[in-house]
């Protein structure tokens, strides 16, 4: 009986300890499930940031390499004309965009501008400027004539 009691006590201790341990382990080890997506997102962000910084380092390295290569070309004393030299000698106009034009302006211009293809229409090259100038002259002439008439009429009335 005594041994039975001991065995029962031992069994209770083992089961109880196991249960208690499980409770404690559950509480400590597994965090609430609600936090998991947030942590994953944070981890992804950290990873992305790390990749970006790696890419930036690589670009910087390329720039240095290009700079050093061009410097080497520029100071080479006895070089015969090569493709690289021709490119260096190319006037800016061939490569540089025109001043005072941004990309959005270019996009708008490309929408407006006709481009050549077989059977294309000739572009519209008429401007309203002569008409505007003519209208201005006509308005001024009418205005001055009216003013003169009014002036002469008022002089007549005064007499």
């Amino acid at each position: 009986m005594h041994s039975l009691g001991r065995a029962a006590f031992a069994a209770m201790m083992i089961v109880g300890a196991g249960t208690a341990k499980a409770q404690i382990t559950t509480f400590v080890a597994s965090p609430p499930r609600k936090n998991e997506p947030a942590q994953q997102a944070a981890a992804q962000q950290r990873e992305k940031a790390a990749q970006d910084s790696v890419a930036r380092v690589a670009m910087t390295g390329m720039k240095e390499w290009v700079d050093s290569a061009s410097a080497a070309l520029a100071i080479r004393p006895d070089t015969t004309p090569t493709a690289a030299d021709t490119a260096l000698g190319t006037p800016r106009a061939a490569t540089a965009p025109p001043p005072k034009s941004d990309s959005s302006a270019n996009a708008r211009a490309s929408e407006r501008q006709p481009e050549f293809r077989n059977g294309a229409r000739a572009p519209n090259t008429a401007t309203p400027i002569p008409m505007i100038a003519l209208a201005g002259v006509v308005l001024i002439v009418i205005g001055m004539t009216t003013k003169r008439r009014e002036r002469s009429a008022s002089v007549r009335v005064r007499r």
């Binding site: 400027i129 100038a133 209208a135 006509v138 308005l139 001024i140 001055m144 009014e150």
Partner: peptide, 22 residues
């Protein structure tokens, strides 16, 4: 008289503006 005078002045101003634009 004043109305006509103002109208003629307005015509001259408008004409001048159009000339300036062109």
């Amino acid at each position: 008289f004043h109305g006509r005078r103002a109208a003629s002045s307005a015509l001259i101003v408008c004409g001048a503006l159009l000339l300036i634009v062109s």
